[in-house]
Nucleic acid binder design. Structure first.
Lengths: 224, 224
DNA sequence: TAACTTGAGTGATAACCTCTAACCATGACC
DNA sequence: GGTCATGGTTAGAGGTTATCACTCAAGTTA
């Protein structure tokens, strides 16, 4: 009875609602058993309907997973955008936004940055969202101007900056964005994968140590 | 007719040979289609025998995969040990040994460092091999003595060094080993997962740039 | 040499999975 | 009221892991 969004027929609303519920159940399954254990049959059974009914809503398992990947990217882009809007385009707030988002649902993180399935290639709209995230990161990295060491990779980046998509950041900022990405992903993915559980140290401290290094504190002008 | 190893009955030799062939086929499948697409049935069909015969050699799919993970760890440990024995326990030769080994079979790398399956816990002998790899890394990181910035994470590591397993490296070396691991894994895993293919830059240059940073060249006393 | 024991491989079977095909009921629209 | 798209069903093809009972050959022992 709630009119909610005008211009949508009740059929469309019902359809959207069922699609959303399917995706919710899929997320539950992924969070508990991983993406490879996702079962359309189990989802249908959970929802009280049997098997092939789901094919009215998704072309198949692959299409559902692609949709989930898209939602994951969108969710990450939202988190990054919100953090940048709230606390400014700072590299530290972006890093903590990323870490919080990753810890919130590790399997969702791995759905984006985990082991790739060899044949798969992401559709264009997904790479578009990814480049929006990268744009926010470039904004933050362009903020911190500072010294540009200008290594060989920076000169290489000066000629291979298509991925920056016209962003006016200097090559050193591009380099900084890439190392930001790879380093935080390195510690985050190993932590989420449980490779640190045996060792007893606190992964959060390693993360902030890497972040401190990234923002230029300890390695160059640290308190040594 | 070849006597090969004395003390082994022909039955045992045959069994070992079939087990090896099963694992070879499994590696082929994993390399081309990923670990999730591994099919015992397909392997059996390829070997000319039908289905349940493989259960004489492996308890099941999980046990076979665990064996492959073990072999992957052993292969990486061999590569690292060989590199350290040949060119000394240097951090750069270890890094390149790791990268070469990873590029040789990306899916093998992901079998170790990729998306984890939530319930799974590695058996003890596997973690033992992992800690042997870590020992080689600690040797290399203890070599480069140098300045110890002594950040908060280093003081934390001074009290949480059980994972070093009695290695006499100072906390700064432990820290260096961890960042070595996480940073190289960060750039390597993103490269192998294909996240750099859209952007045109050369991942090898990013890798060596990270390595240069790790060994202390550009960030502190670079050519800036 | 003959009998026995062990182990490899088989087909049948159960329980899952994805996905297609055919069919039926219900609600919207003319 | 008739037409028709839409969502649901069951049946079935073809795939998977995994277990079971069984056969048969090889190795071992008396």
């Amino acid at each position: 009875m709630t009119p909610s969004e005008a211009g949508t027929t009740p059929r469309e609303r019902y359809r959207a609602q069922v699609r959303a519920e399917i995706k919710d159940r899929a997320w539950e399954q992924i969070a508990t058993a991983g993406a490879s254990a996702l079962s359309l049959n189990a989802i249908a059974k959970q929802m009280g309907m049997s098997g092939p009914a789901l094919y009215r809503y998704f072309g198949g398992r692959d299409e559902l997973i692609t949709e989930l990947v898209r939602d994951a990217y969108r969710s990450l882009a939202d988190a990054v955008r919100a953090a940048a809007a709230k606390d400014g385009p700072d590299v530290r707030v972006l890093a903590h936004a990323l870490r919080d988002w990753a810890l919130e649902d590790p399997q969702r993180y791995f759905l984006i940055y985990g082991t790739p399935v060899p044949g798969y290639h992401a559709p264009d709209d997904i790479t578009a969202i990814a480049s929006e995230i990268m744009a926010h990161l470039l904004d933050a990295c362009a903020e911190v101007g500072g010294d540009a060491p200008e290594g060989p990779f920076d000169t290489h980046l000066a000629e291979h900056r298509d991925w920056a998509d016209g962003h006016p950041a200097p090559p050193a900022a591009l380099h900084r964005a890439l190392t930001f990405w790879t380093r935080l992903h390195g510690v985050l993915s190993l932590e989420l994968a449980g490779h640190f559980t045996g060792m007893r140290f606190d992964p959060a401290l390693l993360f902030t140590a890497e972040l401190d290094d990234l923002t230029g504190r300890p390695p160059a002008q640290g308190l040594c």
